[in-house]
Amino acid sequence: MLTDPGLWEVLASVPDPEIPVISVVDLGIVRSVAPDKVTITPTYTGCPASHVIERDIRDALDAAGYRHVAIETVLSPAWTTDWITPEGRAKLAAYGIAPPTKGAVHCPQCGSVQTEEISRFGSTPCKSLWRCRDCAEPFDLFKCH
C-alpha cells in the first residue's frame, strides 16, 4: 500500500512551536511516514517543545481525517542538524537565524563572516548566541548538532 502523499502535506503544515517559520518536515524530525504510522524523533533530549510538537501533529492529522495514523517517537539514530532540509535552512536564514554550519558563520542580517560567539547556549537548547562585528547585530545560530 502506497503512502498517501496527503500525509506529507499535512505534516508540512505543522510549524515548529519555537521557530514557527519552519515546519516539522523542514526541521527533519519526521523520520518516516507509513500509511498507518508517522515516526518522529526529538531534536534535543530535554527539548520542552517535543510534547507540543507531538500534540500539534496529532491535532493536524485528526483535523485532516488521519485519526487512524499513529505517532511513534524514536530516539535512535539521534537527530542531527544535517537532517534540516535545504528549504528549512533557507527559511531559518530569512527569519534571522543563521543555519547550522561546519564552516564560517554568516551574519543573517548583512552576510558578513566577521562574526563571533557570545554564548554557547542561547534562548533555546538548539541555538547559540552570536554577534556580527560588521553590522553589530546580535543573532542566533542554529547549533550544528
Binding site: Y44, T45, G46, C47, P48, L75, I118, S119, R120, F121, G122, S123, P125, L129
Partner: peptide, 20 residues
C-alpha cells in the same frame, strides 16, 4: 544573563535525560 541561560539549558538537558 548568558550564564543564566547556559545553566538553565544544561538543567533542561539533564531533566530530559531523567525523563527518559
Amino acid at each position: 544573563v548568558e550564564v543564566d541561560l547556559s545553566l538553565a539549558n544544561i538543567a533542561l538537558d539533564l531533566v530530559g535525560q531523567a525523563t527518559h
